[in-house]
Every structure is written in C-alpha cells, then in structure tokens.
C-alpha cells in the first residue's frame, strides 16, 4: 500500500513541476497574444480577462506596415545564411573531427572565441566596411554578417556529431576509391542528418531574431522582421497592440518549423552531446 502512494505522489509532483515549467515558458507569449487583440486602453489593465477581441492590429501590420515583405527578407536572409553556415561550418567541423594537425585545438578554441565579440563593438567597423563595398541595404550584407556567429556555432555543434560517427564505414568507402570530399557528402552527412537539422534550427532562429546588425546595415530593401519594432517605439510611447501582433506573427514560422522537426532536433542534439 505504501509504495504505490509514494509513487503516485511522485507522479503528481512530476506533473505539477512540468506544468509549472510549461506555464512559465509560454506565459509571456500568451500575454503578447492577449495584448495583440486588446483595445489600447485595456493594455494597462491586467485584470481585464474578458473583452471583445479586436483584430485591427493584425490588419494594420500587414496593410500599413507591410509585414509580409519584411518576412520575405527575413526568410531569404535566414535561409541563405543557414545553408552557407552549414556548408562552411560542417567542412571545418569535419576537418577538426577527422584530422590531427598542429593548431587543431587552437582553431577549435578560436571558434568559441569568436563569440566574445560584442555586437555593439563590431557594428561601426562592419558598417564602414559595408559602406566602402557599397553593400549596405542588401540581403548579401546580412547573409555574410550573420556568418560571424552561425559558422562558429555550426562548427561547435557538428564537430561532436562527426566525432560520433564510426570511421569504419568511411575507411571502407575510401578503399572503394572515394576521396575525402566524397566520403563526407555521400556517407558522413547523411549519417549526421539529425544533427544538421538541430543545428539548422538554431542557425535560423539566430538569424531570424538578430536585431543590432539588421538595424544598422539595412534600410529599405533588406530589412528584417525584428527591425519593424522600431516603428512601434514612437516618441509618444510604444504601440503595444501592433507590436504584439508583429511578435505573434513573426515568431510563428520559426515555432512551427521547430515543432515539426522536434524529434530530429532532440535526436540530433543527443547525437553529438556526449563526447570525449
């Protein structure tokens, strides 16, 4: 009798804890959705839970602020950047996982080290370089700039995945006459697919949400979704409803994508997680 009771208590505790975690995680998002359908005067009245929802804000952001074109820019930039990052990054990760060469550890550390550069410190130099190359306000400038954080991230993640893949298959392929590039793309990459998916999601999220560089380097043709927030920070205060509507809509694609590939993502993460 005693054991089942304790087990049941544990169960209840587990579910309570899980509920708490979920609640805290999604509450700000839910609150944002709520604000996006509130009338302006209700935004400052948290106690009002029942009201006539308005969808004016959603209409405004698409019609007046043309959110659609910002989202297309974001998609182009995040997509291209992700592909290039994965390509360059996994090449490097493969080399770091397979070859023992002088400076390997240092290079590996260098990849981590790149994270130290604060965006506020690098923005002026990057702006000046981009201006000199006449690349301001193009998709290319953000695609390239975002490599700064996404390539090192890819290298860090993929190195672990590659180290986990058994070398026997590769060696067999080598004997069959494949060169090392062919081995990488015919054998290693398919095996590391879950890891690549997991990395891709984080790369896309990083690029999709980046704000400081996007703010400075683009103006009319290539602005991404996060920069639209600027329009709602008026001298007379924040236009909460419209900003929340943008937040709700712009998070959705990433969220849906992440949930669709959730299984691969966790499998991918665990793939390279434990290494020595």
């Amino acid at each position: 009798m005693k054991k089942p009771l304790r087990k049941r208590m544990n169960r209840i505790f587990l579910y309570l804890a899980l509920f708490a975690v979920c609640f805290v995680s999604i509450f700000p998002y839910l609150w944002m959705v709520l604000v996006s359908v509130k009338e302006r005067v209700l935004v400052y009245q948290p106690g009002v839970w029942f009201f006539q929802p308005t969808f004016e804000n959603y209409k405004t952001i698409f019609q007046r602020y043309d959110l659609g074109s910002y989202m297309i820019n974001s998609a182009i930039i995040a997509g291209c950047n992700c592909v290039i990052s994965l390509f360059f990054g996994s090449l490097t990760a493969f080399a770091l996982a397979r070859y023992r060469f002088k400076g390997r550890k240092q290079f590996s550390f260098f990849m981590l080290f790149i994270r130290i550069l604060p965006a506020v410190a690098s923005i002026i130099p990057l702006f000046i370089i981009a201006a000199a190359l006449q690349m301001l306000d193009t998709h290319a400038v953000l695609i390239i700039t975002y490599l700064l954080f996404n390539i090192p991230f890819t290298v860090l993640m993929m190195q672990g995945f590659f180290e986990d893949i058994s070398r026997d298959i590769e060696e067999a392929a080598m004997i069959d006459g494949c060169n090392s590039f062919q081995v990488l793309y015919k054998i290693v990459v398919p095996l590391a697919m879950p890891g690549i998916v997991a990395t891709a999601i984080f790369c896309i999220i990083n690029a999709w949400n980046e704000f400081v560089y996007a703010m400075q380097l683009t103006t009319f043709n290539a602005s991404t979704v996060p920069t639209i927030v600027q329009m709602f920070k008026t001298v007379t205060g924040i236009v909460w409803g419209e900003m929340s509507a943008v937040g709700t809509v712009s998070t959705l694609p990433v969220l849906v994508f992440a949930m669709l590939v959730q299984k691969q993502m966790v499998r991918g993460l665990s793939f390279g997680a434990v290494k020595d």
Partner: peptide, 11 residues
Amino acid sequence: LIVPIAMTPSI
C-alpha cells in the same frame, strides 16, 4: 520550451 528560444529578444 522552444517558445522562449524562438521569441525575438527585442520584442
């Protein structure tokens, strides 16, 4: 758990 990761930090 993915929700906080996916939300744009500035918003």
